[in-house]
């Protein structure tokens, strides 16, 4: 009991230490501005040669809504996102068409004028933090590949890779559930599953701070599943971190059936729940990494991350 508490203190990364030792020290203010705006993130990643879901259209003023809607009339599947939305609020996923109507991922129907009203809301800042005016992004729809897709209740699963100084440190798969309503966010009730950095195999599931072994809605076991294209996922996350010049960040990677790994989003204040899914603390990893020099080559850094994860894992 006491020993466990002592290990929490020495191995787990708490919010205080995350803020002081990592966010303040490794993330410059300018980096946040890029990361907090999805459009800016996308263009920064594009410029760095990182694959992202294609941006089809941007609407930045109420009077442009009609034009955007007219262009959407020809589309079959797309995703509407507020550029500054948080926690997945205000995202509309259209997966199909029936005559004049759009079919949402949940199966609900939308008319063109519903979409237009939603667009106006987004522009007015309904979903942006602080109520600031916002922009509406129209993105290509991501269709999850079957391995992780089979473990998700609707929605798109993603892989959160924690990258420190350009080196992947920990990773977890985030699976949508019925309770999280198709969103992959852990605090909404999604399931997080740790991934062994060296093998790309899932380890333990966690949901709401408690361990789970099976998907709560689908009943499939969560551990021992090999994440496809694991090495590509890791090197994509590393290149994404390079593109925005943040020292400590979470990279959300999705696996598209057609295009492979894509970077969906970056988070400059990554949550610490990833330690729960991996059942290991970040501090030994981060502290060793902070003390050593980091190679420039991407695949060398991925290898360094894997070696570190293995070393720290077997050291005890």
């Amino acid at each position: 009991m006491i020993g466990a508490l002592r290990r929490v203190r020495s191995e787990m990364l708490g919010l205080n230490r995350r803020n002081h030792a990592y966010l303040f020290a490794y993330n410059p203010r300018a980096g946040y501005r890029v990361v907090d705006d999805k459009q800016a993130t996308k263009s920064a990643l594009d410029a760095g040669g990182v694959a992202v879901p294609a941006l089809r259209d941007v609407c930045d003023a109420q009077w442009r809504v009609r034009g955007v809607m007219a262009r959407l009339a020809a589309e079959r599947e797309f995703v509407l996102k507020p550029a500054r939305g948080a926690g997945g609020a205000g995202i509309v996923v259209v997966v199909d068409r029936q005559d004049e109507r759009f079919v949402k991922a949940s199966g609900a129907m939308l008319r063109a004028r519903d979409l237009a009203a939603h667009a106006c809301d987004v522009l007015a800042g309904t979903y942006s933090s602080g109520g600031r005016t916002d922009r509406l992004l129209v993105e290509e729809l991501v269709v999850p590949e079957p391995v992780l897709g089979a473990l998700s209740w609707r929605g798109v699963p993603d892989i959160r890779v924690l990258v420190f100084r350009g080196v992947p440190v920990l990773a977890m798969v985030r699976l949508p559930t019925r309770r999280s309503d198709g969103r992959a966010n852990l605090h909404l009730g999604g399931v997080g599953v740790g991934v062994d950095l060296t093998t790309g195999r899932t380890t333990f599931g966690v949901r709401g701070g408690r361990p789970v072994s099976d998907h709560p809605d689908l009943g499939r076991p969560l551990s021992g599943i090999e994440v496809p294209a694991w090495h590509d996922v890791l090197s994509l996350a590393v290149r994404a971190a390079d593109a925005v010049r943040l020292g400590f960040l979470g990279v959300d990677v999705v696996l598209d059936r057609r295009r492979g790994p894509l970077v969906l989003e970056l988070n400059a204040r990554p949550g610490l729940g990833i330690q729960l899914a991996n059942r290991r603390g970040l501090r030994p990893l981060l502290e060793r990494l902070a003390a050593q020099s980091v190679p420039g080559d991407v695949s060398a850094r991925v290898a360094l991350g894997q070696a570190l994860a293995y070393d720290c894992g077997s050291s005890r």
Binding site: R9, R210, R279, G313, R316
Partner: peptide
């Protein structure tokens, strides 16, 4: 300036450490 683990974080991480390794 304090970097210690918050009290509630002990609760949060306790289980992960317990049956971790």
């Amino acid at each position: 300036k304090w970097r210690g683990v918050r009290l509630l974080e002990y609760f949060r991480f306790f289980r992960a450490v317990r049956h971790g390794r």
